[in-house]
Computed example of a mutant assay.
Amino acid sequence: MKDYFKEAKELKDQLIKDRRHIHENPELGLELPKTKAYVKKRLEDLGAEVKEIGESGIQATIKGEAGGGKTVLIRCDMDALPMDEETGLDFSSKNKGVAHTCGHDLHTAIGLSTAKLLTEHKKDFKGEVRFMFQPAEEIFKGSKMMIENGVLDGVDIALALHTNLNHKAGSISYYEGYMATSCDNFKINIKGQGGHGGYPHTTKDPINAGVIVYQQFNQLISRDANPSKHTTLTFGQFASGSNSNIIPDTATLQGTIRTYDPEIREKLLKRMDDIVKGVAKLTNCQVDLEFFASVPSLYSNPDLTKELVGYVKDSSDVEMISSERLMASEDMAFVSEKVPTVYFLLNSKVEGNEFSHHNPKVDFSEDAMPIGVGLFLTCAINWLNNN
């Protein structure tokens, strides 16, 4: 079995060039004009079949020449985050208030070099590899948009990876089953009737209603969720009032709930609705619950994961670390609902950099990128030829 990881190492200079260009020019959400143009040109120069999908999505296809076969999808997300960068890197973001602090710049560079090597190995594989260069992962809109526009039509399996900061570069982590949590961000708007702080009985206190919601929602984790399962609920906002002796008219709470287990997710979302209705009745306030930026748990197909990990172990000396998963969420989950999917964690910790994803000072090891390319090639080519 061929060791594609060795070939991938020869592309490190190009990987770094691509990564740093994308890192310097971060863009947000569904509007990635510079990133799209750069990626599209690089793919067209390789001779891939390229088409634009939606606002900033790119689909690229490379067909093998070893006969008919199936289709493997490789997803690469391209968007950045709305924050300033404080790394001090020579190639720091040139766009104020926008930065690649999640590693999507590495993901995109890995996808481009994977495409390059696949074009050089057309004679070595059956079927085809389809690339899904995706915008708006951070707001959970890009994957759905590209799926609705047919990116999964005819796809048999899907692959993706994400930078991981639990281990230094040189290894790959994986999990068999639900490996990234669902996410349901919520907002609660409470409308009461304000008044004088000395006459609370003449008001409908929205702060009181908000406190009850806060307490009851937090009890969902201790009383409604199975304690053997990983589930979190966090409030990030509780806003109301302007003065010590004025009961306000309104209050606003925002938060997020996450779990790996789809049954727990369904149960808790229903219970949240029940609580809000009960608090409204109890306090005589209007209490409205809104969910936004929701995404299911990402399922890494166990049988397929075992098969692909086997290809890596049989053809290289790259360390594979099992049973590692994320409490973060990922819109690749929408793909995993449609086709068998495997999601890898590309270990990329920079020694001495102790910052997390989404931190303005975080950095990722460029030594990890050739490993990502080798991973995609090993999995895609061997799966196509064996299936």
Rank of each mutant, 00 (worst) to 15 (best):
residue 1 M to Y: 13
residue 2 K to W: 05
residue 3 D to Y: 08
residue 3 D to C: 12
residue 4 Y to K: 02
residue 4 Y to H: 06
residue 8 A to D: 04
residue 17 K to L: 13
residue 25 N to K: 08
residue 31 E to I: 12
residue 35 T to F: 09
residue 38 Y to V: 07
residue 41 K to C: 04
residue 43 L to Y: 04
residue 45 D to F: 07
residue 47 G to F: 12
residue 54 G to A: 09
residue 55 E to Y: 06
residue 63 K to T: 15
residue 64 G to T: 04
residue 66 A to T: 05
residue 66 A to V: 05
residue 68 G to Y: 08
residue 70 K to S: 12
residue 72 V to Y: 02
residue 73 L to A: 05
residue 76 C to R: 01
residue 77 D to A: 06
residue 78 M to I: 11
residue 79 D to P: 05
residue 80 A to P: 03
residue 81 L to P: 03
residue 82 P to K: 12
residue 83 M to L: 14
residue 85 E to M: 10
residue 85 E to D: 12
residue 86 E to K: 14
residue 92 S to L: 05
residue 93 S to M: 12
residue 103 G to D: 09
residue 112 L to Q: 02
residue 114 T to C: 01
residue 114 T to E: 03
residue 115 A to N: 05
residue 116 K to H: 12
residue 118 L to W: 01
residue 129 V to H: 03
residue 132 M to Y: 00
residue 134 Q to F: 04
residue 134 Q to S: 08
residue 149 N to S: 08
residue 149 N to C: 00
residue 157 I to C: 01
residue 160 A to W: 01
residue 161 L to N: 01
residue 161 L to H: 00
residue 167 H to F: 15
residue 172 I to A: 03
residue 177 G to I: 09
residue 182 S to E: 08
residue 182 S to N: 10
residue 182 S to Q: 07
residue 188 I to D: 03
residue 190 I to L: 08
residue 193 Q to T: 14
residue 197 G to Y: 07
residue 198 G to E: 09
residue 202 T to M: 14
residue 204 K to N: 13
residue 205 D to E: 12
residue 213 V to Q: 04
residue 221 I to P: 07
residue 224 D to N: 14
residue 233 L to N: 08
residue 233 L to Y: 09
residue 244 S to A: 13
residue 244 S to P: 00
residue 246 I to Y: 11
residue 250 T to M: 09
residue 251 A to C: 15
residue 254 Q to S: 14
residue 257 I to V: 15
residue 258 R to E: 04
residue 264 I to M: 13
residue 264 I to F: 04
residue 270 K to I: 15
residue 279 V to Y: 05
residue 284 N to S: 15
residue 286 Q to F: 03
residue 288 D to T: 15
residue 288 D to V: 13
residue 291 F to W: 07
residue 302 P to V: 09
residue 311 Y to P: 01
residue 315 S to L: 10
residue 318 V to M: 06
residue 322 S to A: 15
residue 326 L to E: 05
residue 329 S to D: 05
residue 332 M to D: 01
residue 334 F to M: 11
residue 338 K to F: 06
residue 341 T to E: 02
residue 342 V to K: 01
residue 344 F to E: 00
residue 348 S to Q: 09
residue 356 S to C: 06
residue 361 K to Q: 15
residue 362 V to R: 04
residue 364 F to K: 04
residue 365 S to V: 09
residue 366 E to M: 07
residue 369 M to S: 10
residue 372 G to H: 02
residue 373 V to W: 02
residue 376 F to C: 01
residue 378 T to V: 05
residue 382 N to E: 12
residue 387 N to L: 08
